[in-house]
Amino acid sequence: MTLPDAEVAPEVVIEGVSKTFAGPVGPIEAVAPVSLRFAAGQTTALVGPSGCGKSTLLRLVAGLEPPSTGTISIGGQTPDAVRARAGLSMAFQDPSLLPWRSLRGNIALALKLARKRADPAAVDRLIALVGLAGFEGARPAELSGGMRQRAAIARCLVTEPRLLLLDEPFGAVDEMTRARLNRELPALWQARGATALLVTHSVREAVLLSDRVLVFSARPAEVVADIAVAFSHPRAPDLVRTNRFLDLCDQVSEALSRGETARRLVAE
């Protein structure tokens, strides 16, 4: 086994991983046994119907939940070991900002928890990048839902992790801002060659941001399509109007509805 290099983006390998929760009327299988491999430095988008277990998969990779079966390896290490040296970062669906800290304080908290030195100028640059300049001292309660989500993304990026887990990070962001963030943010991790897993409900966003799109069926989830997105980075703004881009979007959408149909057949 080689020594992990914090500067190198890790490959993520999931083997036979499943997750079962105890429910009020018996166990609930949130993730059926699945084996996946995410290449180092690639951004992979995970799309699928609500409740299919994408978020749980992200939490398993982060090591926030132990898998019921199987193993997860991040650059040859366990999730716990990677977390222990602050080697990954995650943006939750809920912004999860601490209400008693200012915007700047919330972002600096990540650096503090990761035992990294806080560079106030770098923190403020990141705040400006997510479009929150001028709100550095504001409390979360004084920000709109979209602003809070952007703050959470900034917090996720500030520790410069080699593995990013993004759980619908742009869900509450308005369409204009979302388009801008879609253009500007990926550069931040892709330029550094970080590995990223992105859960999203937007087919367009999945294709635009990722190198690969995995389409899941409804629970118990299985991968119904694995679509490579072979555009180079950084991507031009007019890419979204090309036929190749629209074709890929169609493929993803079609795979999504196939997954839906499969579930309905199972149900009947």
């Binding site: 939490r59 982060a62 090591g63 926030l64 977390r83 222990a84 040296r85 602050a86 990954l88 970062s89 995650m90 939750f92 809920d94 999860s96 601490l98 908290l109 990540a110 928890l113 990761a114 520790t159």
Partner: peptide
């Protein structure tokens, strides 16, 4: 999720106590 945030950066009970 606030406790998840603490655990995400490899920190445990003491950090959760102080920060959250």
């Amino acid at each position: 999720s606030w406790f998840d945030l603490i655990r995400l950066y490899g920190r445990g009970g003491p950090s959760a106590l102080v920060q959250v």
